[in-house]
Computed example of a mutant assay.
Amino acid sequence: MRSSRLLSILLLLQTRRQLTARELAEELEVSLRTIYRDVEALAAAGVPVYADQGRAGGYRLVEGYRTRLTGLTEQESAALFLVGMPAAAAALGLTAETSAAELKLLAALAPDQRDRAGRLKNRFHLDLPAWYQDAEDSPHLSAIADAVLHDRRVNVLYRRWEAPREVERTLEPHGLVLKNGSWYVVAATPGGMRTYRVSSILELTPTDEIFERTKDFELQRFWQEHLVGFDQVRFTAEATIRVSAALAGQMYDVSYPVLTKAVAETAADADGSVVVTIPIESVPNAAASLSRFGRSLEVLGPPELRQALADLGRKLTELYDGHA
């Protein structure tokens, strides 16, 4: 029991950096006297633990000290986040480290726990890319990942959607996000925090320059705020649409999230059709997206979208009429 408690104190100090005797006692549910004795035992065993005095004081480990009780290397520890995601691990260049970390984890488990872990691995699989598309080719991903882990600046040649198409940028990469098979790097630039598609990086030159990470940056929070902001910029107008009863009954087969959601949340008319209002990116984009539904869907407004669909239909008729 005491050896387990000593190990707990060591790992708590290693992960939280500083704790008072009272905080340790409350965490481990023992008396202050027990904590004092245990810390003395750790020091006697050669663990470099010391106490800072004063109101802001507490027990600390000597800076840089790390226990190797887990047997995991630094890269293997990082790879633990990718166990069960072999495609992502391979893309980041951590296949070997992930396999080694997984083996060490399995070795540390009891036999029944290893059996359960094996069942989970063989019965659940994560396939990230969406249907009808492959994962993007991102040859510079491993270099970006290395820069993220070590806080190093990188110089890139980036291809964007607007002119000038190819631009040079110096990035301070703070994190990587994988969404639907596409990797994005979140990086600090002179203009603020920006998001870049890794597959659009044409050239990358690593540097030895260390940057200071933006204070209080949280990748998950930033990404959620980015998605909200992206939708606000992406959707510039609205369209009112009548969905036929036949199409409304087949929305589970339709790959059009905003339309599917709107139909599901709207009561049908007496004839089974559903009138909904949905956000659209632009009139040309909406016309191209909605034209595939043919007569199963009618745009009621805005007038310019109705006109765009009429023009598209007329051009298709001119192209194919008499060539059937």
Rank of each mutant, 00 (worst) to 15 (best):
F217Y: 12
S244G: 10
G181C: 11
T170V: 13
F222Y: 15
F235G: 13
L204E: 07
T240G: 04
R159T: 14
F230H: 09
E203T: 14
F230W: 07
Q224E: 11
L204K: 09
D216H: 10
G229R: 14
V233I: 12
R159F: 06
L176Q: 04
H226Q: 05
E212I: 10
V167N: 01
T189E: 13
V185G: 02
W183I: 12
A248E: 05
E168C: 02
L171P: 02
V185P: 00
T214F: 00
E172H: 11
A246L: 10
R169K: 15
L171N: 05
R194Q: 08
E166Q: 12
K215S: 11
M193R: 11
V243H: 01
L219T: 07
I241Q: 02
R165Q: 06
R234H: 12
H174R: 14
R159C: 07
E166R: 09
I210F: 00
G181N: 06
T240R: 15
G181K: 08
F217E: 09
G249F: 01
G191T: 15
S200V: 02
Q250E: 10
V228T: 14
I201S: 04
L227R: 09
S244C: 00
S244Y: 03
H174Y: 10
R160F: 02
N180F: 00
R234T: 14
Q250M: 14
P173G: 07
E162F: 06
G191F: 03
W183G: 02
S182P: 04
L227Y: 03
V243I: 14
F211Y: 08
E162D: 12
D231G: 15
S182W: 00
G175F: 00
E238G: 07
F222R: 06
P164Q: 09
P164W: 09
L202C: 14
S182H: 06
A248S: 12
P190N: 07
A237Y: 08
P164L: 05
E203G: 03
E203R: 15
T195M: 06
Q220M: 05
V243N: 04
W161D: 12
R160H: 09
W183K: 07
R159G: 09
L176T: 08
A237E: 11
P206T: 08
G249T: 08
E203D: 11
A239E: 03
G192A: 04
F230M: 06
